[in-house]
Write a protein that binds this DNA or RNA. Structure first.
Lengths: 293, 293
DNA sequence: CCAGTTCTCTGACTAAAGTCAGCTACATGC
DNA sequence: GCATGTAGCTGACTTTAGTCAGAGAACTGG
């Protein structure tokens, strides 16, 4: 389908959807407080924290938030306490009364979603839920951005940790201690470590290191389980290939284990060719290569 | 899938979607005029007409609209002319300058949709477009309401006209002139004519008439071609069955033509049994019946 | 042609939403 | 312990969005 038709589909959907469902937020109206205040209450309830975090998440002005919080505390819905770690900061959280109010917001919004589904037959409801789940995964995956980070940054370490933990469920695997030497190979100039980030949280990662003769090796490629099936791995792989090419490589190689069938299938789809063993990695059983054009 | 899970999917999608795409309307911002004004400009560009129509469509206050229009005319974006048919009314339309502005809104909103798709691979874009097209159809179909109308009302006539025109493409079919006698059979107390309406426009119809002995007959069932595949026909059929039951019938019958294979399949799914010919309709080849419980 | 109705516009409001500069208390690096 | 910076608060403001009660012109049925 050409991109213009796809764009048209998105816009058409957008129109139907916002028109019929309206902003979900409309359900925040009529609760005795203006929409902005309720929106903030909802945000606090979804994730308590400092005022600064709240501001960053909502993109609202400092003075504006301050005043809204005053209103919410006056109404007994949220509590503000000085952060013991830095007493300039203030921690915001819901009071029991605020939680009750938040639950009300939750159920209103659920009610709204239910009213959308209600007129449909069971079969149609299922189709709609399936379609929206698929769209959700893809929309969220489209919002993921790739960042080149230091292999020892906290985000990279967290991702690699999950990667190794997961590998260990497929076969006996001992990652050893993360060493500086090892990490250095994933740093510029010849290496890179890429983190896929959604809304600040790492959801996938992959490293590139130089093997000499214009060959780069892809290592530690991992996708968060909740993000699989959305093609994020393919996008990451393409991104890594482009990065390898940008750092002067003409070929990428990788090894993997026969138990990782989904990964092996993906490498095949992505144009990788099976090659002979090129290293002595005892965990690897399959070896792939792709020439970058 | 239980309805609570379906509700959760809708809400989750809603959150991802509105967060990432934002209200599409945000793209109306930063055009030198406030959002409300631009929204109205967009609405006028989408469909010119009288001020009253515009108000009805947007649900805005008369005074508010009047002021917005003043601003738009002052800026040379729209022109107001007295309606020759009723000089109290005023016709609103875009000036060439206004059209240029409207095109800008259009391209901004298309740009926004494109940016959503852009990071995705072609395969993912296709999946997303497909999922949203499916969701669009279902969401819009959920918003369709069934109304019992007079069989000679303008909506009913328009729908039946399209129905007969379409039948004629399947086999030679002459509806004859719409007669009062014929229409009367689809009126209360024993008959009904049901129109499915989306946003004021008829998208499906179906009539019920009494055959005696607690039997009702479904006739002139039609679904707008753009609305097929969304299960609207199933919903309409269920609605007609309920209506038949409410008017004291225990059985519904219908006849159809062998060329209408999709309809025949649907009757099967809906629990209808094939029966012997029960009338002398020369166009009918298949006859169905269902006992209402 | 008159009474009542309809359509749009105007004046006079209000509440909500947001902006900005400056203030105070606290933290940190030298 | 002092300069510098940061987090949140406050006062004073503007813009936007929307409401409501009429006024005036134009239409309609009797």
């Amino acid at each position: 389908m050409p991109i213009d038709s796809q764009t048209a589909v998105v816009r058409r959907f957008n129109r139907s959807y916002t028109q019929r469902i309206g902003a979900l937020e409309d359900s925040f109206l009529g609760m005795g407080a203006p929409l902005g205040t309720m929106r903030l209450l909802f945000e606090i309830g979804s994730h308590a924290g400092t005022v600064a975090e709240l501001r960053a998440r909502t993109g609202l002005d400092s003075g504006y938030v301050s005043r809204q919080l005053k209103r919410l505390t006056d109404d007994g819905l949220v509590s503000l306490t000085a952060d013991p770690a830095d007493r300039r900061r203030r921690l915001v959280e819901l009071t029991p009364l605020g939680t009750a109010r938040w639950n009300e917001l939750e159920s209103r919004s659920a009610e709204r979603a239910r009213r959308l589904l209600e007129p449909l037959t069971e079969r149609q409801r299922d189709r709609l839920a399936r379609a929206l789940a698929e769209a959700d995964l893809l929309v969220r995956s489209a919002a993921v951005v790739f960042e080149t980070v230091d292999p020892l940054s906290s985000g990279a370490r967290a991702a690699v940790e999950r990667y190794t933990a997961e590998l260990a469920t497929f076969f006996p695997f001992d990652p050893g201690e993360p060493s500086d030497d090892d990490a250095a190979r994933f740093r510029p100039p010849s290496g890179r470590f890429v983190l896929a980030v959604d809304d600040g949280a790492p959801v996938a990662c992959g490293g590139l290191r130089d093997l000499g003769d214009g060959v780069a090796e892809i290592k530690r490629m991992w996708v968060h389980p909740g993000w699989r099936g959305a093609g994020l791995a393919s996008r990451l792989l393409r991104h890594l290939e482009k990065t390898a090419s940008d750092t002067g490589h003409t070929t990428v190689r990788l090894d993997t284990n026969e138990n990782l069938t989904a990964a092996i299938a993906m490498y095949g789809r992505a144009g990788y060719d099976r090659i002979d063993r090129y290293n002595d990695n005892p965990d690897a059983t399959h070896f792939f290569e792709k020439h970058l054009t």
